[in-house]
Write a protein that binds this DNA or RNA. Structure first.
Lengths: 115, 115
DNA sequence: CTCGTTATCAACCAAATGGTTGAGGAGTAG
DNA sequence: CTACTCCTCAACCATTTGGTTGATAACGAG
């Protein structure tokens, strides 16, 4: 139950219904009832989904019946995490490419091993 | 089992051990055994984690005992998803700010309603 | 105050998840 | 061929997850 923030964020977004809720909330705030309407699951199920999103800090509300609002700041958290490893991985590929290029210059054409 | 790509990616990254594997793979490829060494869970457990990452397209291998490699392209998929809603949400906030500013200009000071 | 409406809580259930141990498959070395 | 090492598969188990229904809390309108 006491997992770290990123885990909760990623776990929250792993569910298609919850991603759809986020998508809809990005264009307009909405109440729980409004949010639940399009889906063919119970209101309670959607309420649970919203609790998951709320625990992850992806949405918030001022009071129970107030419209749910998307918290855009969380996206920064994810973006930062992603960018760190993406960048690192890309740099590695570039170094690898450079290394391969260098090796090919040393041995311009090789077939089996030459004496 | 046949969920969409993004769901698998987010679900894969929801686990701290798997995020750590991704972090380590971003600096160097490694075999299953090497990857498993630092954790106090069984090799089989790590093998399962790698399968989850593989199914999500986050890592790949040429053969069973070959080193595991991070697939950097997946990050683009996530980044695109995030950016779409982040952008949309931020635009909404800007419009809201503008609207509030406009309203304050119309009624510079208001207390109850004036006749 | 009472009545509807809106949302949450509680208990329950099936399926998925993350872990275990034990057995087996596939290379590599001798 | 045999043996060892590396990894996966299979079966099992506890916990979590996403759904259900029923009861209940909180609020606005009459």
């Amino acid at each position: 139950m006491s997992e770290d923030r990123l885990s909760r964020v990623f776990a929250a977004l792993a569910d298609p219904t919850r991603r759809d809720l986020v998508a809809r909330l990005s264009s307009a705030d909405a109440t729980v009832g409004e949010l639940a309407a399009p889906y063919d699951v119970s209101l309670q199920a959607v309420s649970k989904h919203l609790k998951v999103l709320e625990d992850a800090g992806l949405v918030s509300r001022e009071s129970r019946r107030a419209p749910v609002r998307l918290e855009a700041e969380v996206f920064d958290l994810m973006t930062k995490w992603i960018e760190r490893y993406q960048q690192q991985a890309e740099e590695r590929y570039q170094r690898l490419d450079a290394l391969l290029a260098e090796m090919q210059e040393d041995q311009p054409a090789r077939e089996e091993d030459a004496s």
